[in-house]
Structure formats: structure tokens, C-alpha cells
Design a protein around this nucleic acid. Structure first.
Lengths: 190, 190
DNA sequence: CCTTTTTCTTAACCTAGGTTATTTTTTCCC
DNA sequence: GGGAAAAAATAACCTAGGTTAAGAAAAAGG
């Protein structure tokens, strides 16, 4: 069980004693997912947030015409959840699916709350994580409002160089907000 | 100086003793802005986050063609900042401008950090604030990827009923991601 | 290694929304 | 209250990106 990665992830923002580390690791429940296996589906309550140690997850919604819209990719070293559902503990709108065989460590909402009470440093840790996620969500919003698909693709390449080569193109197309057909057309003109 | 509003805002998420309240209020520096006055401009470092007690602020970027894209509106009871710049203390990309005569209470980055150290409950408070902001930014992103301008406008009306009637239409158009000309065309067809 | 499924490409045609330009209406502010 | 500035409306024309359909290529998974 690979807990090194998550401890390093945490160490970027807060410092834990060995005892605290052990306690945290104890709360993280490992889970393996096969390709296409779902970690969460629309209508379910997100009772855990997941830290990816191997493989890759994606979160997406289905619109009323049945088209998927990718909200996020989570390669190793990333946290992912249906944040709305996780914080409200109400049914969410997101699907979270493994793009390939994937390993995650899951922290339950209850354990996270307990962790905030027991080790207040975690309150800081998750504040910082969410601050960064918020900034990058806002930036992506502005990019969608002000840039062409071409430019958004260029930014995607800079931000996720490793995913550009490994992910199916239709997934990238969905993330930057175009159809696979248009994405294909676009790639010819570069 | 209206500190009632901000104390109520805080009381929604954490409970402060009278002493803690007094200390917090002491750190909040009031500022008045005239219509069109700028609280922050592109290239500046956002050294404060602002809580609006009266009036209304907006944050926006300028794209390379000189068009504005509204990121957020902040009526009373809202916090606003260039989050990227505020957390990194590097030059940001946002403008923050008063839409009308506006009163804010400003909390400096340094005072916020000190507050985290002195009264750890504030770490929780701002975590919760940012979590909610993140969820709503993600939802708006998905709305932009999957809905028509018409539908986004309907959502805007639900979410900010008070702003629909008071804000210039071109500002709403910018927020939902269309030109004022198209917005005008759209409104005829309802 | 072979079959099934998924992904990618191409192409013709379509539309939501953008652009430019002009006029009308409203709001600001002295 | 009146002149200037900003906002809104209208209309003709334009384009980035969507839709539909169908075949080619590539992976997945036994």
C-alpha cells in the first residue's frame, strides 16, 4: 500500500509528527478500480474523497442530451471528489470513473471531520488544497470565456503534459469544451 | 462602521467569543469606493481580501482584444479578492471595480495569517468559505460547457435575483459569457 | 491472435453566438 | 435640468464550433 505519495503530498503544506502520520495513514482506506469502474455515480452521496496513487480518474457530468462533460482528471498525486456532494452530504451530479486500472486511498467524510478535531493542522492542509483548486477552476472558467478552443488546448498541454499523450483525444476534447469531431478538425490546422 | 454583517457572516460557520470578535473587528479596515473606483488592477498584488457591506463590486479580466469578462459580482455579505494573487502574493490578472458607491471591510494577508495562528477557528471559517466558492465555480464551469446562453441566464436569475434588476445588462451578458448584442437579441425571443 | 468495442477521421451541412455599424434610450453628474 | 457619457437595441452579415453519418484505425480483452 503506497502511502508515501500521500504523505509527501501533505508534507508540501503541513508538518506531521510520526504519530500523526500513522494515525492519518490508518484512516486512508485503499481501493483498486478496474478500467471503466465507477467510484461514484450521479445521484449518489459522495461519502469519501479519494487520493490517486496509481492510474487515472476522471469526473464528468451527463447533460440532458446524454453528452459527457469532463470536469477534472486525477492522475497520481491528485485528490478528487464530487465536492458539492462531499461537503453537503447530499446526492451529487458527478460521475467519477477510472480511465485505466487505478489505485486510490479514500478518506471518509466522518474521518475527515474527526481529523479536523484531532489534528487541527489538517484544517489548514485542506484549506490550502481547496484554495488552489478554486484558483485553477476560476482560471479555467476565464479561459473558457475568453479563449478559442485552440488556445485552451495549448494551455491543457502545458498544464497536463503527461496526460496529452496518454488520454484518448475525445476526453481531452470534452475537457476543453469541444466535440471530438471538431477537435479532430482543429488538430489538422496546426 | 458596519461590522454586524461580517460578524453574522462568520457566525454562520464558527462561533467566536466577544474578545475574538473584537480582535477580528479590529483587523478589518473599512474603505469606501466611488462608482467605477478600482480596488485592484491587473499586475498588482492583492494584499487584502474584501468583505462588501454596501454597494457592489465586480471582478473581471481583459482579454487580448480588450474585451472584459466578468468573473464575479460581490453584493453585500460577499467576500472578494483576486484569489490567485492573494494566496501567492504575486501580481494578478484581475480588476476589481465598484459598480456603485461601495463600502468594504478589508483584511490584509498578513493579518489573516496572524488570525490563523491566534484563532485557529478562522482556518475552518475560510476553508468553508473557499469550499463553497469552489463548488460554485465548478458548477458554473459545467454550466458553461453544457448549457445554452438562455439557460445560463435563467440560472443567473435564480442565483442572483437582486442583481438581475439592478445591474446593467451588459454586465450580466459578460458574466454568462455572451456579447451585449447577442444578449439583447436573446431577450427578445423569450 | 482474433473479435469486439472504442476511438479517430473526414466531409457536408447547420446554428448559436460574434462582429460591425448605426440609432435610440437611459443614466450620470455638474 | 441639460449636456455628456454610457447602455441598449437593431440589423446585416460572419464564423467557430456543432451535427450527422459513415468508414478507418486502434485498443481491449478474452
Amino acid at each position: 500500500m503506497n502511502t508515501d505519495l500521500v504523505l509527501k503530498n501533505i508534507a508540501k503544506h503541513i508538518q506531521l509528527t510520526p504519530t500523526e502520520q500513522a494515525h492519518f495513514v490508518y484512516l486512508m482506506k485503499p481501493r483498486s478500480l478496474k478500467r471503466k469502474e465507477m467510484l461514484l455515480q450521479e445521484g449518489e452521496v459522495s461519502r469519501h474523497s479519494a487520493f490517486v496513487t496509481k492510474g487515472c480518474l476522471r469526473s464528468y457530468t451527463l447533460d440532458k442530451n446524454g453528452y459527457e462533460h469532463v470536469l477534472a482528471f486525477a492522475p497520481p498525486d491528485w485528490w478528487i471528489a464530487d465536492m458539492y456532494s462531499f461537503i453537503s452530504q447530499k446526492p451529487g451530479t458527478l460521475y467519477i470513473e477510472a480511465m485505466e486500472p487505478t489505485e486510490v486511498l479514500m478518506l471518509s467524510k466522518a474521518d475527515q471531520q474527526q481529523l479536523y478535531a484531532d489534528i487541527p493542522k489538517f484544517e489548514r492542509f485542506f484549506r490550502i488544497i481547496v484554495e488552489n483548486a478554486f484558483v485553477s477552476s476560476q482560471q479555467r472558467l476565464l479561459d473558457n470565456l475568453s479563449l478559442t478552443a485552440q488556445e485552451r488546448f495549448r494551455i491543457f498541454c502545458q498544464k497536463y503534459p503527461s496526460l496529452v499523450t496518454t488520454l484518448p483525444r475525445k476526453q481531452i476534447a470534452s475537457y476543453i469544451g469541444v466535440t471530438p469531431e471538431f477537435f479532430s478538425k482543429m488538430m489538422k490546422t496546426v
